[in-house]
Design a protein around this nucleic acid. Sequence first.
RNA 1: GCAGUCGUGGCGGAAUUGGCAUACGCGCUAGACUAAGGAUCUAGUCCGGGAUAACUGGGUGCGGGUUCAAGUCCCGCCGACUGCACCA
Length: 800
Amino acid sequence: MKYDFKQIEGKWQKKWEESGIFKAQDFIKKPKFYGLVEFPYPSGAGMHVGHIKAYSSIEVLARKRRMEGYNVLFPIGYDSFGLPAENYAVKTGRHPADITRDNIKHFSEQLRAVGFSFDWSREFATSTPEYYKWTQWIFLKLFEKGYVFRNKALVNYCPHCKVVLSNEDSQGGKCDICHSDVIQLPKDVWYLRITDYSDKLLEGLDMVDYPENVKQQQINWIGKSTGAFVDFTITGTGETLEVYTTRCDTLYGVTFMVMAPEHPLIDKYKDQIKNFDGVEAYRKECAKKTEFERTQLVKEKTGLRLDGLTAVNPVSGKEIPIYIADYVMMGYGTGAIMAVPAHDQRDYDFAKEFGADIIPVIKGGNIDEEAYTGDGEMINSDFLNGLTNKKDSIARMLEYLEEKGIGRAGVQYKMKDWAFNRQRYWGEPIPLIHCPNCGIVPVPYEELPLELPPVDNFVPGEDGMSPLAKIDSFVNCTCPKCGGAAKRETDTMPQWAGSSWYFLRFCDPHNDKEFADMEKLNYWMPVDWYNGGMEHVTRHMIYSRFWHRFLYDNGLVNTPEPYAKRTYQGLILGPDGDKMSKTKGNVVDPTDIVNEYGADTLRLYVLFMGDYTAATPWSENAVKGCRRFLHRFASLTDIMDAKAQDEKIERAVHKTIKKVTEDIEAMKFNTAIAAMMSLINEISDAGTISRSQLSAFIRILTPFCPHICEEMWAQIGEEGMVSTAPWPEYDEAKTVDNTVEIVVQINGKVRGKMMISVTEDKEKIIADAKQVERIPELLEGKQIMKEIYVPGKLVNLVVR
RNA sequence: GCAGUCGUGGCGGAAUUGGCAUACGCGCUAGACUAAGGAUCUAGUCCGGGAUAACUGGGUGCGGGUUCAAGUCCCGCCGACUGCACCA
């Protein structure tokens, strides 16, 4: 067969669409498989080759599962709220909804041109009222159950985008969207109480099949630590200053305390602080620093001693100074620490800078040089002296603190509550109302969706106000509770809202009575296999696991965890080995590849280019190699001979079926493809292939390159479409050779080779090995110390 | 700093439980078919010695170790990547 992809790809895509063979069917008796990929944000730039790689893995699995007889749900949609569309709207004056609609159209055309077997009947976009109605509904459920709260806080604010950002979106002190510096701004914001789910999110990891590094990242993100809270009294006030520590056993080494500059106790006792002016000056200085600068200046410790306030070490009774310093954060622990300079490097640096005492309580290290953070015998610590085990000393101290009522065991998490709002237009309106009489009142469920009002000006307001705040007809409303005049919340939800439950909607995408029918959820959930990027492991995945677990706890879904299995793909780098970016001009457009080489070649290449999880540079020459393979594959119909009976090829085909079957499950697509390339080489050498062998070969290549396979399937006269043909079985007996070549080694060095029958016994093989050409003379005059036979591999004669 | 992953030809990368290192692809070299080749096909291609062969020595970041046998296991370095990070 002559391979002309331009002629065949469009033709089969149309047939697939018309026949509806990729539509998932609710409730049918076959085993179900729900394969999910991270749905795209429909950017104006269109698809990236990275999307193709990300989707190809589940695509191959979904197609294989269908051929194996599964009822497959492989959906696609669009995560279509977000800043880029809105920024573009500000620039051009076009409505984000129009921009988004165009982008979605473009994306869906690109996706179809690649031949992905999505169930297009379930497609949706998160920015439509039909969808975000239910995003708002779930939000109201969270509100109803007390998981939504409002708090004044220092928030990460991007002066360029004019939005408040979550910690996740402002990592490294840079705005995730525009990369400009983030500053700290006090503001009233909405939070979701995700920290209440810290333990459940940790425990849930035991129920799922995620790669170890993915689990580890989530564990680090949640950052559970066990320790103790200890009460220090502030001299002459009776006031307690509580700290959190993981090493309460070092309490005798505490020589000073440090509070975060924002700590509320400072204001309470400002009359007693003689240098309060200095405190305020220092605070101002800190607020000017961005988070980025704060983390960059790790070396130099800054701070200020509170003149007039001291604390008492609760175990030694010594009076110790209190400082403020920005190396202590208000957001972790209690916002204050007990400093043990002898055994904590940060405290040590600070003590050196400010001349505080350093008392060692653990033997070891060189305290003149640096803090000693290792283990050792307790010293200078009264009743702990002599203990050498950290666990014991902590337990003893804790016991003592509890007895005295000045301390208690406690747990802390690094994860913070989720700042759940944006001061922008293009997001889900938050369905809450500010009533002067009733306070915060939720929009009644039956009034959902609370739709975005039409706007002509998308420029955000000053002081981080949403453009919605300028729309009087939207803002002014009546309170659902008292009927009085009230004002709507004008913030919208953050980008991550819509993607926190989209996998549930795919089970029942057009339901206008519920977010999804319970029976359908019971049938399809959980997601059996979810593939996506490493960059979403800590944000999107944690958020969606949280929402899902919340729904589960309230009887709204049937499984505690949404994703049974998670995998990830590695980046595709530019041909130069750098990350693809517009500024570098090294971006590869998948549409260009489809036009020049065909979708099948593109699909094959992104899975063949290397280890699926590794970052790999793009190579156009390697793309050509994949095209060459498909040309050779197409030509197999020319040498097909119904009567061919080549035993070697028969075995090679069965071995390849086995290899491909297993490698797909292990996501080792590159070696599955390599095996098929080897098979072509063997068939070329043999010069012939039977019809049944070719039929099997076509079927195992179908998940990778479905268009060419459909065409060849038809060419060799098989019935129906190969996409619905059964996955080939292999005969285990034919996957092993009955005669194999083994090596004969002397002292581990290869000295000869021989053919053996695998059923031959060990003694005979070793005896034969000694007769292999050249072996007898090499053994002459030597004494055989040991004879080793590894079945089917080698004989090793150890001589002296 | 903490956590995790990983160092294999000119390049991307293969290598069950330790068992012929470099599968498969790219690139390169030579040849075939061509008016032409950036198309296609065939052969060769880890490095060194050897005449092109037979044969032979070395070889998976570096240094040790265990073993009949180490890319794989153990110890110590060096380097890279990813995530988190004054987390008390």
